[in-house]
Design a protein around this nucleic acid. Structure first.
Lengths: 167, 167
DNA sequence: TATTGTTATACTCTATAACTATA
DNA sequence: TATAGTTATAGAGTATAACAATA
């Protein structure tokens, strides 16, 4: 997994005709190269790896960090609402929440308004870890900001439009 | 999983102060909302789901479709070069290639130049499936093109810069 | 009847390490 | 020594379906 992103870029820029068997330095992506979806996946993959590298392999993955952030900002949120906020199905939010409970980062209480449900809050340890990870997470995103430059707001707007309109 | 993207958008736009327990319609994303990385993930997730919906749940996922496209455009490519082209580790490209072999979409031959390696080609069935999926895949990306509008080239350039510079 | 969360199941993806056969 | 690909393993994410308790 060393330098995947760089090699992808190299493969793209060095793409050219290949008459016999293709080797490493002359991979043609074809239609894929102009597909927004494909490039979105490469960029998301690169961002995910860079986040993990910066925050530390041993610590939280982006998905769990996002959950911590949302619970912090919405004390008392239910698992369902949390899942909708970070685009996770209820079948994936249950194990995620259980992992956070297991690690002592989150606590749950019976919901007063809906006895089928319950509410989530960060524990002291959860707050501490969130605070600890916020700095490297922000550093990671500042790096993305640098790359995108002054077009950041337009870029974010397009990403949000994709989410809203691709329903 | 019905309407996840729409609910995320609604959660964002309706975000406001919440004094007591947060409910569904007033989730605050906090710093996350301005993070490029987080929005990249939501957009990629929405695109992935839309692709799968359009191409057909029963058929190929975006990752395998991308592999088919790259092998088509680079007959004789090795698994390693394929993995680098679509940003997949060698530990994930092996099972992917084996699934394609198992499904009769790809064939492999001994490499003439490197006896540790081998070369990949689409079978007739692989070519047929690729041809069949190309239309819905292009329709999917045209939908993305519509959403992004005339800023497509700039958008693609930013996605590629992220891949290149986030190493 | 519909919804909240749980459980079970299956497949995919990610990541590491150990292995083989070559180079 | 390093590289190509395989195998094994473990942890996540994705998806569906069936279920209990409650709305």
């Amino acid at each position: 997994m060393t330098g995947l992103a760089g090699k992808v870029a190299a493969a793209r820029t060095r793409a050219k005709e290949a008459e016999s068997d293709a080797d490493d330095s002359e991979v043609r992506l074809g239609e894929l190269d102009g597909f927004i979806g494909f490039n979105l996946r490469l960029a998301q993959d690169a961002s995910f790896r860079a986040f993990t590298r910066r925050v530390g392999e041993t610590s939280l993955k982006p998905g769990r960090f996002a959950a911590l952030m949302v619970i912090h900002n919405n004390p008392g949120i239910t698992p369902g609402a949390l899942g909708r906020a970070i685009a996770r199905d209820k079948s994936t939010i249950t194990p995620l929440v259980q992992a956070l409970l297991r690690d002592g980062l989150v606590e749950r209480r019976q919901s007063r308004t809906d006895r089928r449900s319950f509410t989530l809050r960060l524990t002291k340890a959860g707050e501490a870890l969130r605070r600890e990870l916020l700095a490297p997470a922000q550093a990671h995103d500042r790096k993305l900001d640098e790359i995108v430059g002054e077009r950041k707001e337009e870029f974010l707007e397009l990403l949000r439009r994709i989410v809203e309109l691709l329903e």
